[in-house]
Amino acid sequence: MQSLFGRSLHIRTIDTGSCAVCESEIRLLAAPHYDLHRLGFFFTPSPRHADLLLVTGPAVRAFDQAVKKTYLAMPEPKIVVAVGACPLGGVYSEDAFVHGSLEEVLPVDVFIPGCPPSPLALLQGLLVAVGRLAEKVDALSFVDDEAGTGEW
């Protein structure tokens, strides 16, 4: 993946039922505090020029067609990034309105947890997506373990 995306990388976004906050954080990536461009990422309004698709929201069923079309319109190779707890199933459980998980609709390459993921978490996700940063979550412990009972 690294070699494929050594050049600059174009990002497209799609909202599948977000609360509008994940969108707000995504927009701020281009703001001076984060300045996405310095890392070689650019936003593009056209799926045909996009290498990477940022997807927010719990995958509203009625929207499947549009999501798939956007995905198909992207040239290979392409990366799908699920943004926030919504597409990871943490806000809406699966029901008649939503899939509750983006993986039901698209092959997801990178997952960015958070509600919302802060712009820095989004940056990490983007860098992990293109193989420019190693992921950390495997090594993180969520237990203070003195007794040695252990996390698994």
Partner: peptide
Amino acid sequence: GPVRGVGQES
């Protein structure tokens, strides 16, 4: 739309 510009709601 419904898919619109970057960081815009559908």
